[in-house]
Amino acid sequence: MSETVRARAIAEVALMAGVIIVLGLVPPLYVLGLPVPITAQTLGVMLAGAVLGARRGGLAALVVLVLCAASLPVMVGGSGGVGVLLGPTGGYALGFVPGAVVTGLAARRALRLPPRTRGVGLVGACLLGGVLVVYALGIPWTAAVTGLPLRTAALGALVFVPGDLLKAVLAGMAALLVHRQVHVEQMRELVLDDEARPRA
């Protein structure tokens, strides 16, 4: 029944958007003695792509941005509003969508790797989408809004990189574990035991 398929799409996107939002509410943690606390929201974005794939993951990120634009407190720490999107860190927020999409595309390929390297592949996918793409959008945006030269904005962003690298590792591992426990149709390319599972 294509109705159930469509409903599943809606529900998966909505619940994943919820996860992104809730992870943004988890208090930031100081890790590895870094001076900057890491927040979990981009972890959610990476997971959205790695678990649901490019399309639904990207849509989940988009839903979060839409709710943010509607002034709902969905961004890290419970902030929201158009001001967040237009402000200095707006690029990082807007980067959620392409970030999730790229993560999803790369993750789908990663899941086709032999079991031993899948985890690494997923981490790579999260690095690509969750760090590279997001920063590629975030840094120029900051520069454009604040008037800081690009290089300064980039250097400023550098301090967050170690934390985000760690997040990508966590996200990759988490995604692998999730795929082992739950059947996500659109990512399913013989993930579980590499046995063909007959359809009902």
Partner: peptide, 29 residues
């Protein structure tokens, strides 16, 4: 964080399955 994220996601996915059924059963389509 890892021990939080994985169960949270699994829970979100299983919930989404039930919600999808409810949406269909309640005539959304």
């Amino acid at each position: 964080l890892l021990a939080l994220a994985v169960p949270l996601l699994v829970h979100a996915l299983t919930t989404s399955e039930q919600v999808a059924q409810a949406v269909v059963a309640r005539s959304f389509f």
